[in-house]
């Protein structure tokens, strides 16, 4: 590939900058109502909605709006966050009824003429405000044995893997375990036993890794009554995934692999 790259012409020392990027101008601001579903069992068993009127800037995200509330209005508002740019998976929540990461959702992309609603993801027990108990989610993840199992003896150097074999499971290695998919799945809401899409995505990552020898074992687990067959192909998960993983496609591939095995 590198041989094909042609030498780029030396870029100009000085150019005319497009539009307003050179400077000047105002940063646009927005007024909005943030409507947050508050829940704190220390205070009351009942959840309630609370409205906050905020003035925010053009590049602000829902996470910035939540921080503004927490830091300037009500310090007891509780939510998880860390990286603030969509790579750690801490802040999946329901924003205007859809599962998304608060740090990856820009306010200006939402309809601000109506209140922006924010609530905890569904299907996992709410602990306080936007914080849910993630244990059941990680329990399903652990059950599919999410680690490489290889029966051959260890080579001295690396195991070889062709580029095609590596590409085969690339999509599902992107998962950040945010639970946006699993908690958007209607089957998961009604049936607490279902493994849920995220666990299947992570099983896929190993089943289709040419270096792994435990595919049969994982397929057997997923063929179980709580496994892949519960999936009704509603595509909520694929829409929810902030990493753009083709979740439904991954589940379909696992289903096919189970059938091909014919236990």
């Amino acid at each position: 590939m590198t041989t094909q790259e042609k030498e780029a012409a030396e870029p100009a020392s000085k150019v005319d900058l497009p539009g307003e990027s050179g400077g000047g101008g105002e940063i646009p601001t927005y007024n909005l109502t943030l409507k947050v579903r508050r829940y704190n069992p220390e205070v009351s068993e009942e959840a309630h909605w609370e409205d906050y009127e905020l003035e925010m800037f053009g590049t602000d995200r829902v996470l910035d709006a939540l921080h503004k509330v927490k830091w300037e209005i009500d310090g007891s508002l509780s939510f998880r966050r860390s990286c603030a740019h969509g790579v750690c998976g801490s802040d999946a929540m329901r924003i205007n009824g859809r599962n998304r990461l608060a740090c990856k959702t820009l306010l200006k992309d939402l309809d601000l003429s109506k209140p922006v609603t924010v609530e905890a993801i569904k299907g996992l027990p709410c602990e306080k405000d936007l914080i849910v108990d993630m244990e059941p989610f990680f329990q399903s993840y652990r059950e599919i044995m999410p680690f490489l199992m290889n029966e051959g003896h260890e080579p001295e150097r690396e195991r070889y893997q062709s580029q095609e074999d590596r590409d085969r499971f690339d999509d599902t290695t992107k998962c950040i375990l945010c639970a946006a998919c699993t908690s958007s799945c209607p089957v998961f809401w009604t049936d607490g036993q279902y493994f849920g899409p995220a666990a299947i995505v992570n099983a896929h990552r190993f089943i289709f890794d040419s270096r792994d020898d435990a595919g049969d074992l994982r397929l057997e687990i997923l063929n179980d009554k709580e496994g892949v067959w519960r999936c009704r192909t509603t595509f909520n998960c694929t829409e929810a995934c902030p990493r753009g993983i083709q979740v439904t496609k991954a589940i379909a591939e696992v289903k096919q692999a189970v059938l091909a095995r014919a236990f």
Binding site: F147, R157, E158, Y160, S162, Q163, R166, F169, T173, R211
Partner: peptide, 20 residues
């Protein structure tokens, strides 16, 4: 350190020969 990670399963990008 790199070979340990590969053996643990890390999906490194590969050369045309299949090495890291």
């Amino acid at each position: 350190a790199v070979l340990d990670l590969e053996k643990m399963g890390l999906p490194f990008n590969r050369t045309p020969e299949g090495r890291i």
